[in-house]
Amino acid sequence: MTRANTPISPQGDHDDAADRSRNVETETDAAAARLAHQVGERALAWLECMRGSFALTAETPDDHVEGQALKSLAELALAAGMVRREAIAGPQCADTAGRLLDFGWRQVGRGDLLYRLQARTPAATYPMEIYAPFAAAGYRHERMDRLAAHLLGLRASRVIEHVPNRRLAVVAAAATIGVTVPDDVAAMIGQTWLGGTPEPWMLDAGNAYGVTHTVFHLTDWGGRPEGLPQRLQDYLHQWLPVWAEVFCETRLWDLLLEMLIVGTCLQRPLFFPAVWERVAAAQRADGMMPNGLTTPPADPHAAWRNHHHPTIVAVVAGTLTLSRAISHATTAGGEA
C-alpha cells in the first residue's frame, strides 16, 4: 500500500519534515526548470521555423495593416527579447532570438511603420505598446521616441478609457520607452481585478488574463518582481497554486502558461513542476503548443493562426522559469 494511492492511511510523524521539505522544493524546482528549458527551446525553434507566417502582407497601405498581425509581431519580439534579456538558454537560442528580433524589426519598417501609425492616430496607444518590446531589446526609432514622450505627457493620456490592466500596459510601455508618466499607478492597481483581491473562486478565464497581465506589466515580465505590491504577492502565493491546478484541467495551455509566468514574477517565485509535466506532454513534437481541446490543423501555416500565441507564451514561460529557478537555487544555496 503506497502513500500515493492511499492517502487515508496514517503516516508516522516526521521530525525532519522541514529539511525534507527544503530538499523536495529544490528537487521540484530543478524538475520544473528542466522541463521548462525543454519546452521553451522547442517552442522557440518552432517560432523560427514559422516566422514567415508572422510577416505583414507586403505593400499594404498603413490604414489596412491588421492590428492582430502587428500584435503577433510584438509578442514575437517580446518572447525573443526575454530569451535575450535572461541570457540563460545557450548560444543557439540567443542566435535564434536575435534573428527573430531582426525579422520583426524589419517587418515594422525598422520602426517607421509604428511611427506612421502613431502619428496618424495619436490618441491610440497600440503603436507605442507594440514598439515597447522592440525598444526593450535595443531597437530604437528616434522620432517614435519623441512622439511617444509628447503624447504620454498630454492630459489626454491620463484619461484614456482603457480597462484597468490595459492602462498598466501603457504605463509599462512608457517606462520601457523611457518616459516617466504622472499616473497614479497605485490607484490604477486598485481598479484591476487582482488589485481588488476578490474571492478567489470568482476568477474566470477573462479575468485570469487580466490578472496575468497586471502582474506582467507591474513587474516588467519578472524583471522587477518588487513592482508588485506585497499584498498582491501574498494573495498570489495563496491562490495561484489553486488556479494553476484548476486551469491545468481545462487544457487552456495559453492561459496556464501565463499563470506559470506569474509564478516566476513573484519575489518568492512559485514553480509548478506537475503543471510543467502536463505542458511538456501536450507540446507537439515540432515545438508548437496546442490550445484547448481542439486538434490543430495538419497544415503548419493554418495551425499557426491559432497556435502561435500559446507557443510564444511557452517561450516566455520556459525562459523565465529556467532563469528564476537557477537564481532561486543560487540564492537558497547562499542562505543555507
Binding site: P200, W201, L203, Q238, W239, P241, V242, W243, E245, V246, E249
Partner: peptide, 14 residues
C-alpha cells in the same frame, strides 16, 4: 487553514 481554503476554492471553481 490555507490548504483547506485552497481546497474550498478549487471545489467552487470546479
Amino acid at each position: 487553514h490555507l490548504d483547506i481554503s485552497r481546497g474550498l476554492v478549487r471545489a467552487l471553481l470546479r
